[in-house]
């Protein structure tokens, strides 16, 4: 069943693009045919995070303008079968595409892909409206801080109004130590405010920075805590029952300690 999912947040810098790249990679590795659309026209990033920036010829705007065919603009990942990118244009602005054009584009992609993941720009204006217009369902990404949660709440209200269903939540960059010390919102605090279903919690992980700079999403080959969390989200997306990581498992120390214990090693 083909699904078009928009990843959005309201606030910038909470990890939408990283999440899109990692989920696209995880789903493709699991055998699903996936296209990730960078809908952040004028400020494209998804190509860099996926490591595909030097292979872009055409962009989403070229497709909409009729300057190329859709298949010409799709960039195929060489590392993983079934993963494609539809990049944004860097030299245009968000009003280069209309919601009805975006919807037609997504509908065309449905015919060829199991998953169409749309990476939305920050904000609630035209760029967000474009990104959401072709999607059936939504993943809202937030970090556990009040400003991001308030913006997520605003976006959820707009997604509800746009009839997206289901709308599910990813809490990104959780810092377990700070939660334990009471210095960061807990996941339950965030859920209490936003009142939508949780699909995943991703811990803060230095490996994300490294992977972004290398253009290798963590779900390509890493076993870091964030990689496991993204992988779990991708499995929940396809309907698998996957237990949520405990806060203690969300640090490299906790995870490695469990492996050591499992292998009968001390420390």
């Amino acid at each position: 069943m083909e699904r078009v999912i928009v990843l959005t947040s309201g606030k910038g810098g909470v990890g939408k693009t990283t999440t899109t790249a990692n989920l696209a990679m995880a789903l493709a590795r699991a055998g699903h045919k996936v296209v990730a659309i960078d809908a952040d026209i004028g400020l494209r990033n998804l190509d860099v995070v996926l490591g595909l920036e030097n292979r872009i010829v055409y962009s989403l705007v070229d497709v909409v303008d009729g300057a190329c065919r859709l298949k010409q603009a799709l960039v195929k990942d060489k590392r993983v079968e079934n993963l494609f990118l539809l990049p944004a244009a860097q030299t245009r602005t968000k009003d280069a595409v209309r919601p009805d054009q975006m919807k037609a584009l997504c509908d065309e992609l449905r015919a060829d892909f199991d998953f169409v993941l749309v990476d939305s720009p920050a904000g609630i204006e035209g760029g967000f409206q474009n990104a959401a217009s072709g999607a059936d369902e939504a993943l809202v990404v937030t970090t556990p801080d009040m400003s991001a949660v308030r913006d997520a709440d605003r976006i959820i209200g707009m997604l509800e109004s746009l009839d997206k269903h289901p709308i599910r939540l990813i809490v990104n960059r959780l810092r377990p130590n700070m939660v334990r010390e009471g210095n960061m919102l807990d996941v339950s605090d965030v859920l209490d405010i936003l009142a939508i279903d949780l699909i995943g919690v991703v811990p803060e992980d230095d490996n994300v920075v490294t992977s972004t700079n290398k253009g290798e999403p963590l779900t390509l080959n890493s076993i870091s805590p964030a990689a496991r969390a993204f992988d779990n989200i991708s499995r929940r997306l396809v309907g698998e029952e996957v237990p949520f990581l405990e806060v203690d498992d969300m640090t490299s120390g906790g995870f490695m300690a469990r492996i050591r214990r499992a292998l009968g090693l001390k420390g």
Binding site: I124, R150, D151, D153, R154, I156, G157, M158, E160, A195
Partner: peptide, 14 residues
């Protein structure tokens, strides 16, 4: 004016 009764939560921006 009659009281306005709302049986739902108001999200940010509403």
């Amino acid at each position: 004016c009659r009281p306005f009764l709302l049986f739902r939560s108001l999200r940010s921006g509403q």
